[in-house]
Each structure stands twice: as structure tokens, then as C-alpha cells.
Design a protein around this nucleic acid. Sequence first.
RNA 1: GCGAGAGUAGCCAAGCCAGGUCAAAGGCGACAGACUCAAGAUCUGUUCCUUAGUGGUUCGCCGGUUCGAAUCCGGCCUCUCGCACCA
Length: 963
Amino acid sequence: MKDYIPSEIEGKWQKAWLDSRIYEAEPDPEKEKFFMIFAYPGVSGYLHIGHMRGYTYTDVLTRFRRMQGYNVLFPVGSHATGNLAYAFASKVEKGDPVQIEYLKANGCSDEEIERLKDPMEVIRFFNDVYVNDYWKKFGFLADWRRFTCTANPDYQKFIEWQFLKLHEKGLLIKKPYYAPFCIKCGPVAVDPSETDLSKGGNAEKYEYTLLKFWIDLNDGYDREYLVAATLRPETVFGQTNFWIDPKINYVRAKVGDEVWIISREAAEKLKYQKDGVEILGEIEGRELIGKRCTAPMIHREIPILPSEFCDPNVGTGLVTSVPSDAPADWMGLYDLQRDPEMCEKYGLDPEMVRKIEVIPIIETKGWGPMPAVEICEKLGIENQRDPKLEDAKKEIYSAGFHSGKMNENCGEYAGMPVEQAKEEIKRRMIEEGGADIMYDFSEEVVCRCGAPVVVKKIPDQWFINYGDPELTEKSREHAERMKILPPDYANNIIDILDWFKERACVRMGRWIGTPFPLYKKWIIEAISDSTLYPAYYVVSKYANDGSIREEQMTEEFFDYIYLGRGSAEQVEKSTGIPRETAEKIRSDFEYWYPLDINLGGKEHMTVHFPVFLMNHVAILDKKDWPRGILVHWYLTMKGGKISKSKGGAEPIPDAAERFGIDAMRLYYSHIASPFVDVEWDEKAALNYRSRLGRIWALVQELTNYGGAERKEIDRWLVSKFNIHLENIRKMMDSFDMRGMSTIVYFEMMNDIRRYMKRGGENEEIIAEVLDIWVRAVAPVTPHLAEEIWHDLGHNTFVSLERFPEPHTKRISDETLELESFLEETMNDIREIIRVTGKKAKKTVIYTAAEWKWKVTDIALSMEKPEIGLILKEAMQNPEIRKHGKAVQNFVKNLAGELRKRPDMKKRLPFLKGAGAFLAANAEYMKREMGQEILLFREDDEDIYDPAGKSRAALPWRVGVYLE
RNA sequence: GCGAGAGUAGCCAAGCCAGGUCAAAGGCGACAGACUCAAGAUCUGUUCCUUAGUGGUUCGCCGGUUCGAAUCCGGCCUCUCGCACCA
């Protein structure tokens, strides 16, 4: 017998598939096509086994479809847009020890590392790793000829065309935008993975409302303002005073034709957001204390008071005071009111300070009129330096925002919900010239290079207008018709499409990507160039084999291929691409499109999938819009991070070697549904491997097993397998690879074992079942399947064979029922043995008496088998009536059973033969139970029934007596 | 904050959309038995409590709808995830 050694068969079959080029997908008008992709990975370095989950699903599903007779297109590619390759190369260049170690741990040679100082080499290198070390190693049957990468010049011609089409549809718009920007390196991304950053990846971009308080300092500037920044513009009605930190030196900054007094830090930031900001000079905070300024909106003069909580790094470093709703303001005021000495120190009239009254402005559910005052008491906050103020602020802010309503002190806004008033008041103040906008981060953000990251105004930013009403509506309608899994997401994506507005689509800086065709200083960003790309796999094959060159891939060419505009002749004339070639590509596209499934991880739910759909809808004809989306969740590592000690960190090829590829593929397919996160479990992977070993061994055993004898159990096995095939078909309609795997790798195996245990040995039946089985394992564990397939004497590829179809005619319900009746009977006996702890020598089994069956027949013939009705009719029969009270009990039991178990009506008739069936299988029971088995019918003349257990016999269950 | 999802027996994980056949699939682990000199592997059985095969209490918590709820509705608690120049 051959041992199961995965590495011995995997390489062999992968080579055979490659050599015979069965992965190549070409149109075949005789066959229905199936076109599926996974969202290509970003070129970010080595991947880990978690990434292989989704890729493997794709290969399993396409293999399954292929075996169902579809002509399958499964192309792969990679996404190199962005600065990852730059970052990677520069780390290598600098000799970053972590980076070098990482490369070496993955088996990268010194020579190779040397080359990886060049970003383009990084891309080339990892493309090779992905294709050869990951996807091919995992046995994928992808059409390798079509591989493409977003950094390829031909791909970029495609993106250029895509943007020309978006422009043609009026979906590109230009307007100012405020983006994160390193003052040295240019545009950067603020995200927690901190690709670009050394600090602040979690920062949020806040929009501050700048409130302008007019002040007359007699210094020659007549349009001079103190400028406070706030996130709560609606609270202006509650302003009582203004805060300045006397210890800080502020600056006068020229902004337009106004002079703003703000912190130096704020002025520096503003330079990036407003034109012509210029620092004119310093002004001490101390100087301003005690003066008065005029608040916007309420146009009231308020005093300027000293405080300690003004942070020059936050907002403008100046703060307006709304003690009713801002806990810090309240504490600031409270501190000062209690401290006349402090007032005098700054030349303030303590009486004036004491007279300042808090103005309630917002009614908040669960809070009184002055929530800030309230919460300070509640939390026992002592003064303005108390760190608990931060929590207080959050709680009040949240409560006010969601449930607050403006009160009668808020003029025309009285009664308006805070959520709405916030926007309206802000807008009004900006219109009146009393306010402005400034963006800032919620925390400090620092670039990789060490320089600060600021929010910078980009005056001419291009956007794709995903908010376009017509595009949104068409996309929504189409989404409703698509097959989208999981079902929750199918509902959810509709809302996401509504919510999607403009999206910035170009950027500047050191960035790999396609130059924006309308204005080449811009480069198309990373999401926007990966939306329509499944269409490009049709063309990439011709670019890769040299049939067409990128300079020939003009707008006219793509218009013809994707939209059918113009003609092949015209394309030939203007590009030199032979007419036949153009026609062939066009017809390829017409054959393969639309895409049947786009599979991707859950991270794509709110970004990639919606824009993928919308770009198709915007640009292509309706018939070419995609048909399906499949979202999968993650394979996570313990503790969230990959770690060597906990396993799973090893390079993908090493894991493939250790666990076996088929075992890994089965692991992904079976460990959980695609729609939950799964924690990597090395032991489970090893279990799958040994499971495959057992299947292997069982198959070997079966090939030398059996003879010509036919038995009842043959029918049972065939029935079982056909039921399984029916279920698989249903499951795979919703891509339920897990359910399918349970059947194929567990249930089918158990059935075969039971068949053998029950004495089944017919070689034709075994051959039939083996044929089904080996085909059934092919989508998930193709290497194992090929090996077995060839051992069975075939010389074709099982990968190209048909997946077995169920034959419902071969399902015998009667056999299945009787077999499970036998099993239940034995379980009953075991149960009694277990409960009593008795070791019986002899088991007596009683089947139900004739009269019980007669009553059962009566009940079965009735529309509504209720106790009274059955009893009435049964008692007509003297044969039955003579059993008296026993009839009543039985009818009660029977009626209950029929009500509780709807399938009983179908089952019972099959059980009429149960007595004979048990008798025929008495030998088997005896062997299994290790004891003598006696069989009687309840009404047998010569019955042996010392305990009266025969009375317990029912048509659907036997009576049992142990001795 | 906005939005989404999840909480099922020792563990993992189906079931929930289409309520009854659900004490709830399957796997793992554990226990017992078979095989073996032994261990491992493999095979068989058991694995909420209770019990001559019965009955009881379960599917995060509380309540509701229903003849009947793990499944439907409402509220609460806990956890996870996505949120736009990040692929």
C-alpha cells in the first residue's frame, strides 16, 4: 500500500497541469462561460497563509464550475500602485536590519536583496513570488498568460482609457480638497498601518469652525480678530467670555485683508490651508487679558479672561467659553470666580467676574439646562487642571449632539436638533464673515521622514463623482439583481452606494501609478485604478504575448474592444493592430464578460466593491455589468499579529510543505463558513492532513476489495451517495464549500465505512461510489484526486472531468428508513445498557402487534389524525376493541407522534417491513452488540416476555428486554 | 461618531433568511471498548442533568408574538469589524 505523502504527488500534478496547459482559457461557443477573479493583492511584501484563504476559495469554486461543464476564466494579477514599493526599496537601500532579516527569513538571497533597492525590482520580485511560490504552489488553475500588474505600461494604458471615459461621462470633477501632507515629502496617507508615517496613524481629520471675535487694540489694524477654534459652533449662543493663556505668546497673522490673533503653531498650519497667510508679529497673551471682544453671531461684547487649558497645538490656541456645555469652560470660570486674587493679578474686577452667569442653550435628554456644570459635580471635578475633564467633555458632547435641542436662548434656532443646528449656524456665520474653517488632526502626525504632517489645501483636486444621482440609481438597481454573498452585505451595499459621494482620485508625490490623462502632473490613486480591471484580463493576454504593444492601445482601440464603437478596420488604420487581432479581442470580451464573481476580503466592502460596481455601470454597456460579489472574512493569527512562536508565521511555501497543500485547501474550505473570522489553528491543519491520509488509505483498501455478491446494503450506499450529491448541488449554489466539504470528506467516508461494516462487498457498487468520490474531492483537494484517479486506471485529468450528478431515481427511501430503524434500535439497546450498567447476555426485541399497525393505518388515512377521531374509528373494529385501555394509550402516543414529527406520515409505511428487516440483520446485531438477539412480535403465540416489555413496542420503535 | 456583524453545549463551528422532524450537524478534545507486548495510529461507542430506552433544563440577558422559538419582534449587556486617497 502506498503511503500518503503530499509532497510526492503535489509537484507531480502541478507540473502535469502546467505542461498540458489545461489552465489556458479560450472562448468556446459550445460552452457556457464562468469568469471569476479574486481582488488582486497589493504588492506589499511576502504574504502569509491568511491571505491564501480567499485565493483558495477562488480556485475551489472555479474548479467546481469547470467540472460542472463551464468554460472557466480565472486570471490573476497584482496591484502595485502606491508608495509601498518605494518604501520597501528605500528600507532595503538603507540596510534596515528588520527588513533585511525579514527578507532572509523568507529565503531571499543576498544577490536578490541587492536588487531590491530598486522599487521596480521589488514589484517584479514579488509578482514572481505571488505567482510561483504561492498560487502555482497551491495548485491553482489560473490562466497564467493573463497575469497583469498595475505598474505595467500596458495596464496603465487601460487606466488612461478608463479615465477618459469617466471624463466623457462627466463624472470627473475638480474642487478644493484638504489632504494630509508631509511638509517635506508631499502627500501621505494617514492610516493605522502607518505605511507613510512614523506617528499618528490613527489621527482623525477634524473640521474646526474658526470663530472671529472682533477686537479693537488701537494698533492700527481695524479688521483685527481673536480667532477661536471649536468643534461645536452651535454653542455660540452660550458664550460668556473668551479664554486666553496669559503665558503664551500669540502671533498676529495676516489672513486675506484681516489680522488674526492665533497661536504661532496655528498660523503655521493655516499657511497650508489659506493663501497669503503671513505672520506679522507676536503679541503676549498677557496683554489681552481684561479686554473685551465682540462674539460672532450673538454680536455681544464679552470679557477676555485668563485660563490654563489653551493648547497652542490644538485649533488656534484660543478658546471661546461656553460654560453651560463645555466642562473645561465651566471649571475655568468657576476657578476664577472663587479666586479674587487671581482676578486682581490680571487687573480684573472680581465683581465683574463673579457676575458672569452661565447661559443655558441646549436641552439634552437626561440632563438639566447646564450639563457641563452638572457633570463636573457628578464626576467630582475640582478645577480646570483635572484630567477627568476629558471624559466629561466626551460624554456631554455625545449626549448633546445626539439628543440635544436648541432652547429659547438660541433665537431663530430654538427647537432645532443640535445635529442640524450645528451645520446651519456654522454656515450662517461663515456667510456673515464671522467664521471660517480650518482642518487639523486629532493628534500629532509625523511623517516617516521625521517632518510634521499637516492638512494642506489642494485647490484643484480631481474627484470621481460617485454621488452622481443617475449613476447611483443605476448601480443600486443593478446591485439588487446581483448575486451578493453574504446576504447581509447584499442589503448593505445598497446603502453604501447611496452614501458614496465624491472620491479624490488623483494625487501627487512619489507614487507608482498611472499619470492622470487630463493633467499629467497628477497620478491616479490606488483605489481608482482597480475598479474596472477584470475587463483588462481579456486584453492582457495579447499584450503579454506581444500581439499588441502599449503604444497601440489607444482610446480608439479600447473603445472598440469594450464598447463596440467604431470598427476593427478603423483600429487597424489608426494603430496598426491587425484587424483580425482587434476582432478577436473584441469577441473574447463579448464572450467572457460580464464577470461572474468578484471575490474579496471584508476590507473591500465599503471601498472596493462599491466603486468596482459603479465604474462598470458608468462605463460599460448594461450587459457587461458584473453578476456577483463574494465577500470573505479573515484568517487571523493568535493575538492578531503573526508571530513565529505561535505558528502560522512561516513562509507560505514552508507551510505548504509542512501541512500539505490539499490539507491547507481543505482547511480553508471546511474550517468555517467564509463569512466569519477564523483563528489559525495549526493542529486543525494537521488533522485535515491526517484525514486525507485516511481517505487515501480507505481508497487503497477499496480497490482490492469486494466480489460479485449483491446485498440490500448496496442500495443503501447508492441512495446515500445520491442524496449527498443532491445536497452538494444545493449547497454550491450558494458557494457553500464548507457544507460540501463536510459531505465529501466526512459523511461519504463514514458511509463507505458503514457499508463495509454492514457486509457490503459488491465491486460494481464500490467502483461506482469510488468514481463519485474521487470526482467529488477534486475541487478542494485536486492533487489527491488526480493521484487516485490515475490509480483507478484513468489517464485523463480528473480536474477536467464532470462533477457527479445526482440520480434521484437511485434513492430508495425505504432502504434508508429501514437502515436508520436498525440503527435506532441498536441505539435504544445501547442506551438501556448504559443506563442500567447491566451487561446483558441476551437481548429480546419486540416489534409492534398487528392491531397497532391497523390503528396506525387508520390514522394515516385521516386528514386530521386527532385522538378522538382515531379512537372512534378504531373501536369500530372488534379485533382492536378487545385490547381495551391499551388502544387508548397507543392512540394518544400515535397522535402525539404524528403531530410532533411531520415526517412520520411518510416514514411509517416503510417501517411495515421492519420486523423482517431486523430478522434478516440479526446476525449483524449479534456481532455488533456482542450478545444473543431474540426477535418476537408483540402478538406472537410463543413469545418470551418475562418483564412484559413487549407492550412498549410501537410501529416506529421496538420494545426491548435485557437479560 | 457613522455603519455592519457576532454571542450556540469543554473548545472550534453549522443551524437562524423560509418557526415545528433541534438536546441542536460536523470537527477537535475527553472518556470507554476493539486492535496491539506497549505506545501511537486506526476503528466502534459515549460525551447538558436525569432515567430501563423517560423526564427535565438549555442556544448572551430580559420581555413579547405563536398551539409551538436557537430561529420572528422589542429592549439590554458583551465582543468584533469597516469607514474613502489605506491596499
